[in-house]
Design a protein around this nucleic acid. Structure first.
Lengths: 338, 338
DNA sequence: AACGTCATCGCAATCGTTTGCGTTAAGAAA
DNA sequence: TTTCTTAACGCAAACGATTGCGATGACGTT
């Protein structure tokens, strides 16, 4: 019915009292008579008065809002993260603003600016694949906005980070392939400008070394999507010594590889073992079911948010904590047993 | 380095001029001399001045923010919707606030209140399964906040709606089962308090009738998750005349049903055809690949946002448009051919 | 009667920005 | 010299809410 929104002034006018009295009455200030309080509260309820959060933000410079910059929402892992973020924020009375970079650098910059303009109290970032320049994020840091990186972190920041132990996870995954009899293990790698790409590659290498297998450069092929997996398989299986094990840097790539292998009549895992990374919902639905590394996205989002809220509440605390979320191997059917 | 944020006053003080002059200089007002403009702009750049969106919102009562209430983000369909929302909003310079109800009524109410308090300019809602009372949404409507329902719409509103033609989609899906030789088609139904549940059931019924098959109540079983699908199959396959075709109200249920059937050694689609609904990313990864109805989530989110922004820009327009997003049958391998 | 006490309330500033209007001084026109 | 114009800027109110401080009046106290 009403035009826009009911304000304290509307209540004051209607009751013939001042705005300050209304304000105090609404928050049960002792200076106000019970009679007045009753009147104010009744009218407020009747008019459905809701305090204007924008005005409160301006006055208190607290927006009760945190922001998230994420590469793409339409990924099981990232949407789990968001879910964790949203749940923790909700419990703390915070609102969440989502920005997706769509893996584009320029959009990430614009997002950072929007976050700044909106005076978000803290920001959580997982950087896009295209991002090599981090000025826009330093800008946030310079403005004293607590920053927490998760998963795809940037180097050169004193901010907090929430990650998995990519090296260890990759190591364990590769090790499992070795243990179950693979002799020639290839790696479908993530972009190397991302720390996760580097770390996972290192973990893979170290596991090979410790397992007594030689590291061969031709077994590492850059691929991080269903489509690129096709190229990777085409290349790898035409090698003089084609691999008998595959460690992919994410599940979609692993699935793409499985499809490509099956199309070429290879049996999984008899001819080639396949190990994914991320344990998305659908890794349970493939045939064979995909063995993978569970990244615990929800937990990562929840933990990152907890840390962020802690920083917001405690700005002068020492920065730079790095929280490592546990991962665990989920062995299903795409890898051999024993 | 700096404390909090740079304001117009900081610039004014440093330059020994008034705040109004700074404001005008920044927006290239003709009343300001080129000399002053230069000084102001230089200092603003140096100090990295960013206008305080909160103050602007208070003044203009335009927050440039829209809100979304969604059951759960961790669903391919819903995250696609969000992706569409975010993209369109981004292009229009709007920010998106995400709230997930986690399918809980009470949380949906809290979300609506937060949306109101934050003066979101418009809200898009897909109601939770638990929601039967719509007062909280009427509250938004009463406050003149444009509302757009998508997918899971509520009845009794004059707001815009963006839906798929659930009846037609269910009809076509069921019809395809009939055409490919199924004689006893069961339906794993969504909750009937949701319009989508009702409509899909109706479409199923009508397709049976038009296809010359009898409608039997025992062939309709409520199930909308992987877990409940197990119960459904257990029940259905012990019927005197077990079904030879299955139409599930969503993909996860369909996949659960496939797993349950395969565990009982039924062949798909030879013994039982299975048709899903939603065409999530993983319907491509199952064995056999799941036939399904593509709901075009991204398009739905994008279109809903376009309509919402249109309403925001044009508040006195006539309300109540219902936009129907096209669906299409994606025939893969879980249904028979011919 | 004069003063102090206390309950109850209003004034005005504030957050950061915008904007209508008034002000100032310099130069032009008379 | 006087008046008018105009360029260039400042004042102050406004958005909605909060809050320190002051104001008012009804009491009770000496």
């Amino acid at each position: 019915m009403k035009g826009s929104q009911v304000t304290i002034k509307d209540i004051a006018r209607e009751l013939g009292i001042s705005a300050s009295t209304v304000s105090r009455a609404l928050k049960d200030h002792p200076d106000i008579s019970v009679e007045t309080k009753r009147m104010v509260n009744d009218l407020a309820k009747k008019l459905r008065y809701k305090p204007n959060a924008v005005a409160l933000s301006l006055k208190s410079s607290r927006t009760n809002t945190i922001g998230v910059i994420i590469p793409e929402i339409v990924h099981y892992f990232f949407s789990s993260v968001i879910s964790g973020v949203e749940d923790v924020a909700y419990d703390a009375g915070y609102n969440v603003m989502i920005f997706q970079s769509n893996e584009k650098y320029e959009r990430e910059v614009t997002n950072a600016q929007a976050l700044l303009a909106n005076r978000t109290e803290g920001v959580m970032v997982s950087v896009s694949k295209e991002t090599h320049n981090f000025e826009h994020l330093h800008m946030l840091e310079d403005s004293n906005i607590p920053l927490v990186f998760f998963d795809r972190i940037a180097t050169g920041f004193t901010s907090d980070k929430v990650v998995i132990d990519d090296h260890k996870a990759a190591y364990t995954a590769t090790q499992h392939l070795i243990k179950t009899g693979c002799k020639r293990i290839a790696h479908l790698a993530a972009p190397q400008n991302l720390a996760i790409g580097e770390k996972r590659l290192e973990g893979y290498k170290d596991a090979l070394r410790d397992g007594g297998l030689p590291y061969k450069e031709e077994y590492v092929y850059p691929a991080d999507s269903v489509e690129l997996a096709e190229n990777a398989i085409e290349y790898l299986m035409h090698l003089p010594e084609p691999p008998d094990g595959l460690f992919a840097n994410n599940d979609l790539t692993a699935i793409g590889a499985m499809k490509a292998l099956q199309r070429r009549e290879y049996r999984i895992p008899e001819d080639v073992s396949v190990m994914g990374f991320s344990a998305g919902r659908f890794s349970d639905f493939t045939t064979p079911k995909l063995s993978s590394v569970d990244q615990h996205g929800y937990e990562m989002g929840a933990e990152a948010t907890r840390i962020l809220l802690e920083r917001i509440a405690n700005p002068d605390y020492s920065y730079g904590e790095t929280k490592v979320i546990d991962t665990n191997l989920v062995i299903r059917e795409s890898t051999r047993t024993l």
